[in-house]
Amino acid sequence: METIFIINALKLVGYGCAAIGPGIGIGIACHGCCTGSARQPELAGRLFTNFIIAAALAEALALLGFVLAFIL
């Protein structure tokens, strides 16, 4: 009982750790998108599309962590 609880808790902690990197990555991507579209507002549409793509690539890591926390 006690061991199972600890293992489940460790899965959640592991997922939390896995979310740190993508969080930083998406933050940097969003910063770039915001500053870029503040300097050149006419490019905002394209920048936002690229931001979504970059955020999706970074988010893939967090999602892998989410899946692994479920299935392990």
């Binding site: 999706a56 988010e59 893939a60 999602l63 892998l64 989410f66 899946v67």
Partner: peptide, 16 residues
């Protein structure tokens, strides 16, 4: 690998 993993990330992103 990143191509195959797309099917997983698309599904899990929306679901999550």
């Amino acid at each position: 690998v990143s191509l195959v993993i797309r099917v997983l990330t698309l599904a899990v992103r929306l679901y999550g």
